[in-house]
Design a protein around this nucleic acid. Structure first.
Length: 291
DNA sequence: CACGAGACCTGTTCGC
DNA sequence: TGCGAACAGGTCTCGT
């Protein structure tokens, strides 16, 4: 579930606390369990366990798709990758939970089967980082800025103006779709929202960035902000039945709607591959294809 | 240096 | 029903 709107939704939920769950801010980390070593980008697990213990969670922020937990001394950076999710759970320590090997492994039968890393929070609570595909990364650093150094502007910030976007577009010849996915170009846009943004802007995913007119750049700027804002308002998009609270999926115009009618003109939505990513668009509404 | 391809992972769905 | 192929919300690294 992890593009900017999803990560922002998670951030807000962790800040506010939820029914039956404690707020994260103010809680002390009593210990850590690492189930898949590569989930922890840095430092090495023994150092991580020693260093994170005793620190208090003081604030929760987001930059691009990174969740930043400001601790007493360090910053815990969490990137959910493709399939990562966070869960406040109560019960026995994850590390002490006996592995029940049933014949048929179904996700629903073992909620912590994909838990890769866990923080003990006291009162029996823990924060579990689940990640079936193991693309997510957690790091504990004294200074998060080097990791975030090459990330582009936050699309919902004041500094991200239409003029800034237009100027940046001129520097690239790549397909718009690829460029929107590039985190150094603009922060937080992923495959779902890149497609949705381009449809809203009426621009073909393969349109070369340096051929975007000023009027088109402005339309793209509006679309990026409108789509991301709206997605946040609906708590993101999710296809997960268990945490099916992201309602933006009901507002998708092209993503995973191959063959279904465009909501604007009725033309069947097409799926192509751009930059090795599945790309959905309306061949009638979205102009500017090369050739 | 900008860009594209392959790698990293596991699970689910599709097509024959 | 079975089995391989294709596909899935994201970055990294490497070669051109």
């Amino acid at each position: 579930m992890p593009e900017l709107p999803e990560v922002e939704t998670i951030r807000r939920r962790l800040c506010d606390g939820r029914a039956g769950c404690p707020r994260l801010v103010g809680r002390r980390i009593e210990g850590a369990w690492v189930g898949w070593a590569r989930t922890l980008a840095e430092p090495a697990p023994p150092v991580f366990r020693r260093r994170v213990r005793g620190q208090t969670i003081e604030r929760i922020e987001r930059r691009a798709k990174h969740l930043l937990l400001g601790l007493s001394r360090d910053t815990l950076m969490i990137h959910l990758g493709m399939s990562g999710s966070l869960h406040l759970r109560r019960g026995r320590d994850r590390g002490a939970t006996p592995r029940v090997r049933t014949r048929i492994h179904r996700v629903a039968e073992d909620p912590v089967r994909y838990c890769r890393l866990s923080l003990r929070l006291g009162d029996g609570w823990r924060l579990d980082f689940d990640d079936p595909r193991k693309f997510g990364r957690v790091r504990l650093v004294s200074d998060p800025t080097p990791v975030l150094r090459d990330i582009g502007p936050e699309p919902l910030s004041r500094g991200f103006t239409a003029a800034v976007l237009a100027a940046r577009l001129r520097d690239h010849r790549r397909a718009l779709k690829s460029l929107l996915l590039d985190q150094s170009f603009v922060a937080g846009v992923g495959n779902i929202y890149a497609d949705e943004v381009l449809h809203r802007a009426g621009l073909h995913p393969r349109l070369r960035a340096d051929r975007v007119t000023p009027a088109q750049a402005r339309a793209l700027w509006r679309a990026v902000r409108a789509v991301l804002r709206e997605a946040i308002r609906w708590n993101g998009t999710t296809f997960d039945q268990v945490y099916g609270e992201g309602d933006f999926q009901r507002h998708l115009r092209v993503y995973q709607r191959t063959g279904r009618p465009c909501r604007r003109c009725g033309t069947p939505i097409r799926r192509i591959v751009v930059g090795q990513r599945g790309t959905h668009f309306c061949p009638r509404c979205q102009v500017g294809s090369p050739r």
